[in-house]
């Protein structure tokens, strides 16, 4: 493991101070939430020295609030905590499913959604799920908090919109209207312990007649960043989310994908499977919204 210094600030201001100090001196500081990506990197990928800034002591980063208008999930909240929150599961079953796909039970005791997002892997499972439900990043900075839609947060493979001196303190999710539900599916060759070859998150709203009035579709692992596919959403809106609509949405996802061929799958395979996942996730979301 590479050498590092460790600090655990207890206030957001203190954390920002540490980041600012490092930025001004040209020294490297890195946020630690669950550490499930960071520790692996420190061990094997990039062992250069740095200061680790642990945000698990920050009250704000540990807050989970299911409010009247919106839900807030702090950046240090472990997946295991979310998985056991029945209110959240009711509201955002797709997001919790996505979080539950990452890591084993032991890893989920540490892993965080915010960490998955900041790590900015093209295959991060919670990212399409967050985009589908319209989640917004709450970013702490010296000049106060700023907000940014999740689909605008990830800027490339392993890069995000955080500026020097900033950190992600939590995620804000608008409360879903009535008869709204989300779902997330990914494809892996095994049942566990794997990374998405493709992923699709869908959130949709039905009216009393069962017609889709709003939808958001996001796909992962088929482009440098997770994509918001409005053409797929458009294919669902105004329909009863029947087989034709599902096939159209699937085709839109396949068309929007710009995957690569690598050890995990070919371009053709990923294009096809991301459509299949969109179709299946949309059908699950539809059934949930009707329930």
């Amino acid at each position: 493991m590479g050498a590092f210094a460790y600090v655990a600030p207890t206030t957001v201001a203190e954390a920002l101070g540490v980041l600012e100090e490092h930025a001004s001196q040209g020294k490297r500081a890195q946020i630690l939430a669950g550490g499930t990506d960071l520790l692996v990197q420190l061990q094997s990928v990039d062992r250069t020295p740095r200061t680790i800034v642990d945000i698990k002591k920050l009250e704000e980063a540990n807050r989970v609030e299911v409010g009247a208008d919106e839900t807030f999930v702090g950046a240090a909240v472990a997946s295991a905590v979310l998985n056991e929150n029945e209110e959240l599961k009711q509201r955002f079953p797709g997001l919790i499913e996505a979080a539950d796909l990452i890591g084993s039970t032991q890893i989920q005791g540490r892993a965080t959604i915010a960490g998955n997002l900041c790590n900015a892997s093209p295959a991060g499972d919670t990212i399409p799920a967050l985009i589908a439900i319209g989640a917004v990043c709450v970013i702490a900075s010296e000049s106060g908090n700023r907000e940014l839609a999740v689909e605008d947060f990830v800027t490339g493979v392993g890069t995000n919109a955080l500026q020097d001196g900033e950190f992600l303190v939590g995620l804000k999710i608008p409360n879903p209207p009535a008869r709204t539900a989300d779902a997330y599916l990914r494809f892996i060759p095994r049942t566990e312990m794997d990374i998405a070859v493709a992923g699709a998150g869908v959130a949709l709203t039905l009216d009393d007649a069962g017609t889709c009035t709003a939808a958001r579709v996001s796909i992962g692992a088929v482009a440098p960043t997770a994509l918001l596919v409005t053409a797929a959403a458009d294919a669902l809106v105004g329909t009863s989310v029947d087989d034709d609509a599902l096939a159209a949405a699937a085709a839109a996802c396949s068309a929007a994908a710009s995957p690569i061929t690598d050890k995990r799958g070919t371009v053709e395979y990923r294009r096809k499977v991301v459509g299949v996942l969109c179709k299946r996730a949309a059908a699950i979301a539809r059934d949930r919204a009707q329930a």
Binding site: P189, R190, T191, E192, M193, D194, I195, K263, R264
Partner: peptide, 14 residues
């Protein structure tokens, strides 16, 4: 794929 992530031996649930 010199690691168990991408050299896919079956896991118990497989």
């Amino acid at each position: 794929n010199a690691g168990f992530l991408d050299y896919r031996i079956p896991v118990a649930s497989d």
